[in-house]
Structure formats: C-alpha cells, structure tokens
Write a protein that binds this DNA or RNA. Structure first.
Length: 487
RNA sequence: GGGCCCGUAACUCAGCGGUAGAGUAGAUGCCUUUUAAGCAUUCGGUCGUGAGUUCGAAUCUCACCGGGCUCACCA
C-alpha cells in the first residue's frame, strides 16, 4: 500500500472518531479575533483577556501532559497551549489533531517563560479535518511544477507566493483607484466575439451550440471600447483577461490581464503623461518606493522618463540613419549586416521592426518611451500630420520589454478601412491571421468617434516589474501547463 | 521548435555500475514552558515510463512523458 494512502487512512480514521462526538466540519464557528489584532493590541493589561482564534494547525509540539500548537490565520501565526491539568479528558483531542487541520480555540492570553505570546486553551474544536499532510515544514514545496499545478500547496508553504498574489491584487486595485480619481469609468466588453481584433495575435476558437456558430476569445479590448467612445463615453477603461493562442514563455501566458483605457479629446502625449503618473502611483501603493530592484537592475521610476522617437532609437542603438537610407536594398543590406533574418519581400517597416526588437528594445532597461511608429505596423493609430509613414504611437519599455502601447486613435473611417484592408491582404498573402476587417467596427466609426488617446498595459508584466520577478508564472496563480498523464 | 539541466518515500534532498539512504511528516513509548522541542523504537520506494548495454542499472545509452532555464518564434 502506498505511503500516501496510509497517511490519508490514518487521518480518515481520526475523522471517524471525531464524528462520534462532533461534526469535524461544522457550518457555524465562533466569532474570532485576528491574530495581528491580538498582537497589536497587546499591553500588560490585555494579559488574561479571552480570545477566540480560528486557523490552521501548522506545528504541533506535544510533551506529555502539555502541548503547544502553532495556529496560522490569514494574518499571522500564534502559539496556543493545551494542558491536561486544565482540560482534563478534552486534552486527548491533541491526538486527533494533525498538521493542516483547521481548529477554533477559546482561551486567555499569557506569556510563556520565553516571552512568547500564547493562548492558554480552555475550549478547542476541530472545524475542518484535513485528510492529506501539508508540505514539509522547513523547505516547503520548492518543485516549480508542484508550485504551479498545486498553487494551494505553494501558498500554504511559501510566504512569498502569498505576497506576490497580494501585490498583484493591489496593483489592480491601485490602477482602478487612480483611474477612478481621474473620472474614468470601468466598463465591460465581451470575451466571446465574432471577430477577434485590435491586435495581431492568433485567437482561440470556440463554438456556441445554439447559434451553431464559431466564436473567438478576445485578443484585445480595443475595438469594443472604441465603440463605447462612439456611443458618447469620454473616459473609459477595462481590466480583463485576453487570450492569445501563441507561445508560452517566462513573459508570455496564453491568458493575461490587460488594462485598456480611452480618453476622448486627448492625444498620445496626454496618454504618456498619464501612464507615467499611473505607474508611479502603482509603485508607491504596492511597494512604497519608486526605485525597484529587479535582478541586477535598479529601476528608477522617479523623475522624467527618457523619450526617443522610433527613428532616433534606431540611430542611437543600431546605427541606422533611416532618413539617409533612400533605397530599400540599402536598408536590407544594413539589416543583413546586423545579422537580422530577412524574409522574402520584406517591407521597410518590417525590417525596421526586426532591428528594433533585436537591437533596441533589449537595451531599454530604464523606463523609456519610444514615439512615432511606422504606419504599416500600426493599423489603428492616427498618422502624423505631414508624415504619413509614421503614426502617433508610443510604446513604453522597461527591463528590455514592452510594458505599454498607446496611440492617438485613428478616427477617420475611410483611412481605417483602407489600413485594415491592407492588413487583411497582407495576412492573406502570408497565410497568417494578422487582422481582418471588422465591418461592425468600421461601420460604427462612420458614425463619428471623437479624437482620443488610447492605452494598453499588461498587468502581469507591471506586477513583475514591481515585485522584481523574472517569470510571469510567479505572478499568474494558475499558469498554463500541459496536462499531465496519470500513470 | 533548438541547446542545457532536472525527475529517488507524502515533502526537502543524498546516493551516480555491486543489498535503496537521511531529515521532515506519520505510528508507538517517555516527557508540564516548547517553539526547526527532545530521546527511543518503527512504518513508508515499480528510483518518471519503456526499451537497450551489462554477470549486475537509481547510476551508462536511446526513445517517450512532465518540468525548469535559455535561444528562436510571438506587435
């Protein structure tokens, strides 16, 4: 018989024994005091005060006629003491309590010889009998596979995982607080869509039975939120999961949390200003500091952030003087010199973007805005007046990867239709799903959309930055994993 | 997808051609101030799976499964 089964059977027997007297899974438990509250209220005159605490047994030290148990609630850990002298036959319950059980105790506060604040138990009840043993107490669970697949065990044994989860929650909370303070309202748009647009990513496909129709899971929030601008809202945002059917890596998960905001009568310069404030606000709220350690880097979020145009960045980091390169073949040769892999019939923008990714982005460690992207790779952004090859778009880079993407939103329906058509043709030629024409969206645009600045931020990546974490799997509680075959 | 690494008890790990080990957790006994409690006894394994090499494989080889790091892909 496997060991684990034996351990479980022993606990099942204890459960049976408990059932003879009391239900070890009661619905109603006594009102309790948080452990942190007992500790922070502690003064000499709270000695002997009566408290009820509820929580999980994380350590048990029995020594004959006296026993100590460490109880952990959502706030902290506290030691309790059971003595045979005080409890009589009730003391025997110690033999039915295992690590991992939830118990409720009532007793009076005192200090042991070693000055440890302790509850002297007068009343004790098992309120949830655990059947499986918790992870080992010194090291806890360290195997990343167990940590990701069984996050409950990770959370039980690793404080850090809990801190990260809380930080992620605070990040979202502080984003909401900031945007609400700026009079944005939060709206919801559909996850199941007829067209998955607003970004260039492969969507997940699902099927609605009654409609007998395939639907896509959204890859961005953009097109629906813009329809709400058309409908008359002026400052809106959404925080929600999007789904991209692409590779999994330390910075990619198939589903992740995206913030998108749209502000009417603003342009991308306004958005850049807001984004900086937003991130500084989050950092202050979540870590209380604008200097963030991440690996070997110390990221300084304070003060002004560097701004470079796309063209200047290429010049500065890759030595590409775009304005002096007149012929496509000269650019192709430059790219080849840099060791960039060139597909057949590349356009200028695609080559530039390749160089950008390989030579510029990895060097942008401190917060850096890159402004004015090529039109060809930005089908939803407004062209710069008098310079049709570039659009009013910026991306924010920190730690060498993209944090945010924003533009002055394209609101000329004729231009929009042309640009989407170009993308569709290109996608068809390359047999890729880049972006199809969303007729409903373009038609909506024809009713008039106010000039607006839009923003998209990957929240997990923001949390990674703030928490100094290198892997998105540390941020996402249940990261995508391959199904494990059971032998 | 390529390269490198990992998979041994429920958990954390050692062992790396010659009888499968430790600590934690569990069980039993002793123990009224412990807190990684202690002491003693004890239970617990298809060494990820499958083939191969070998007198002999946890150990060497190959394939597969799962995971990690990294490169590539990915707006």
């Amino acid at each position: 018989m496997p060991t684990e089964e034996e351990l479980i059977n022993i606990r099942k027997e204890k459960r049976e024994t408990l059932l003879k007297n009391n239900n070890p899974y009661p619905a109603k438990v006594k009102k309790h005091t948080k452990i942190t509250e007992i500790r922070s209220n502690f003064q000499q005159n709270t000695i002997n005060n009566q408290y009820v605490i509820n929580g999980r047994v994380i350590a048990k030290r029995k020594m004959g006629k006296i026993a100590f148990i460490d109880i952990q609630d959502g706030s902290d850990v506290m030691q309790i003491q059971l003595s045979k002298e005080k409890l009589g036959t009730i003391f025997e319950i110690i033999n039915l309590i295992d690590l991992g059980d939830f118990i409720s105790v009532n007793g009076s506060l005192f200090k042991t010889k070693t000055e440890e604040l302790t509850i002297g138990v007068e009343d004790i009840e098992i309120i949830s009998k655990a059947l499986r043993p918790p992870p080992e107490k010194w090291h806890g669970v360290v195997d990343p596979e167990i940590r990701y697949r069984s996050r409950h065990l990770d959370l039980i044994s690793n404080k850090r995982s809990r801190q990260i989860a809380i930080a992620f929650s605070k990040t979202i909370q502080s984003i909401r607080n900031y945007l609400h303070s700026k009079d944005f309202i939060e709206l919801q748009t559909p996850i199941l869509q007829e067209n998955a647009g607003g970004a260039a990513a492969k969507p997940f496909i699902t099927h609605h039975n009654q409609l007998n129709q395939d639907l896509f899971l959204r890859i961005s929030l953009e097109l629906h939120l813009k329809r709400l601008l058309i409908g008359g809202f002026e400052k809106i945002f959404e925080i929600g999961k999007v789904f991209r059917n692409e590779g999994i890596s330390y910075k990619h998960n198939p589903e992740f949390t995206l913030l998108e905001s749209y502000e009417a009568y603003a342009d991308y310069n306004d958005v850049a200003k807001m984004l900086k404030e937003l991130i500084q606000f989050c950092a202050q709220e979540v870590v209380g500091n604008l200097e963030i350690k991440n690996g070997d880097h110390i990221i300084n979020l304070a003060g002004e952030w560097e701004k470079l145009t796309y063209i200047d960045a290429l010049h500065k980091f890759a030595g590409i003087d775009y304005l002096k390169i007149k012929e496509d073949k000269d650019l192709i040769n430059k790219a080849k010199d840099l060791g960039i892999h060139i597909s057949k019939n590349p356009s200028r923008s695609i080559i530039l973007d390749e160089i950008m990714k390989k030579f510029v982005e990895p060097k942008l460690i401190q917060p850096t805005f890159i402004f004015d992207y090529p039109t060809e790779i930005s089908p939803l952004a407004k062209k710069i007046d008098g310079n049709e090859n570039f659009v009013e778009r910026f991306e924010l880079f920190i730690l060498g990867y993209e944090f945010a993407n924003a533009y002055s939103e394209l609101n000329d329906p004729i231009d929009q239709r042309e640009r989407m058509t170009e993308q569709a043709i290109k996608a068809k030629n390359k047999d890729e799903e880049i972006e199809l024409i969303d007729e409903d969206f373009v038609e909506a645009l024809e009713y008039g959309m106010p000039p607006a600045g839009g923003l998209g931020v990957g929240i997990e990546r923001l949390a990674m930055l703030l928490m100094g974490e290198h892997s998105i799997r540390e941020i996402i509680l249940f990261p995508a994993m391959r199904t494990k075959e059971t032998n």
